[in-house]
């Protein structure tokens, strides 16, 4: 059970990483980041379940979710600002920014 969960944690992390490396759309990059975050959440809970410390792992996950929401909110604001400046969601367009 735990080994299977951890195998899927690895797979999810790989899918998110692949999205980050292969995508050019800024929103798609954030989606990749979110998939990696879900792999981390599943990993925390599986580890807690494995050791019988579910309370501890849940408190860590709740902290992690709060951090995740803040990161996504700020990243979305950055994406909208970049779109206002460049008129595109292509990450390569940010290379033209100066100052």
């Amino acid at each position: 059970m735990v080994a299977i969960n951890m195998i899927f944690v690895g797979l999810l992390f790989f899918i998110g990483l692949y999205c980050l490396l292969s995508s050019r759309n800024m929103i798609k990059l954030l989606i990749g980041l979110e998939i990696m975050a879900k792999a981390a959440v599943l990993s925390f809970i599986t580890a807690g379940f494995h050791r019988g410390e579910t309370f501890f792992s849940q408190s860590l996950v709740i902290t992690f979710i709060v951090v995740e929401v803040s990161i996504v909110a700020v990243a979305m604001a950055l994406v909208i600002n970049a779109y206002k400046n460049t008129g595109s969601l292509d990450i390569r367009s940010l290379a033209k920014l100066k100052g």
């Binding site: 929103i27 954030l30 989606i31 979110e34 879900k38 959440v41 809970i45 807690g48 379940f49 579910t54 792992s57 849940q58 996950v61 709740i62 979710i65 709060v66 995740e68 929401v69 996504v72 909110a73 979305m76 994406v79 909208i80 779109y83 969601l89």
Partner: peptide
């Protein structure tokens, strides 16, 4: 892990999806 599940469902499936959809609509 019911508390983590509630947070995942309400905050991540709810709030973050709303953030994503609003950003997609604005861009």
């Amino acid at each position: 892990s019911p508390y983590a599940a509630v947070f995942e469902l309400s905050v991540v499936a709810g709030l973050i999806t709303v953030l994503f959809v609003s950003t997609i609509a604005l861009t």
